[in-house]
């Protein structure tokens, strides 16, 4: 069975940003949190609550639909897989995602696509994130 990232318990988040640091580290080999697929944000300053922005693992992903070069293809269980060799960096996928879960890597000139690897879950110290099993 395929697994997808879910962030249903963000009420527990302590705002350590470890998820972003390890995602950028593991997936982009970079220390910059802008390169992380998952984003944790504060709403209303530090005293506000933390919210996450992540790929929703759509079954019919709009990002793939608008991709002119078919660089994004449907992933088993939801979400998409990026083929960097055919991606032209047009940023249409970024605009198409109304959750704003797709960011753009200014160095690579390619979108930053979550592939639901679960490293953020492994390094979340407070049980906010989870890999959920879904049907293929």
């Amino acid at each position: 069975m395929a697994k997808v990232l879910k962030t249903e318990e963000m009420n527990k988040c302590i705002g350590c940003f470890t998820c972003m640091l390890v995602c950028a580290g593991v997936n982009r080999k970079n220390h910059s949190i802008s390169k992380s697929c998952i984003s944790v944000k504060t709403s209303g300053g530090i005293s506000g609550r933390f919210v996450s922005v992540v790929c929703q693992a759509c079954r019919e992903p709009q990002c793939a639909e608008v991709c002119p070069s078919d660089a994004l293809t449907q992933r088993k269980g939801g979400g998409v897989t990026l083929d960097k060799t055919v991606c032209i960096g047009c940023r249409r996928c970024e605009e198409a995602c109304i959750v704003e879960a797709i960011k753009y890597d200014e160095d690579e000139r390619k979108p930053i696509i979550c592939h639901h690897c679960g490293v953020c879950v492994r390094f979340c110290p407070h049980g906010c994130l989870e890999m959920q099993e879904v049907s293929d």
């Binding site: 390890v22 580290g25 593991v26 080999k29 970079n30 220390h31 910059s32 949190i33 802008s34 390169k35 200014e106 160095d107």
Partner: peptide, 17 residues
């Protein structure tokens, strides 16, 4: 600040991390 800082020697770094 959030400039791009590539991680050098990722494997070793992440093991210690």
């Amino acid at each position: 600040g959030d400039r791009s800082i590539p991680i050098e020697n990722f494997k070793e770094y992440f093991k210690v991390y």
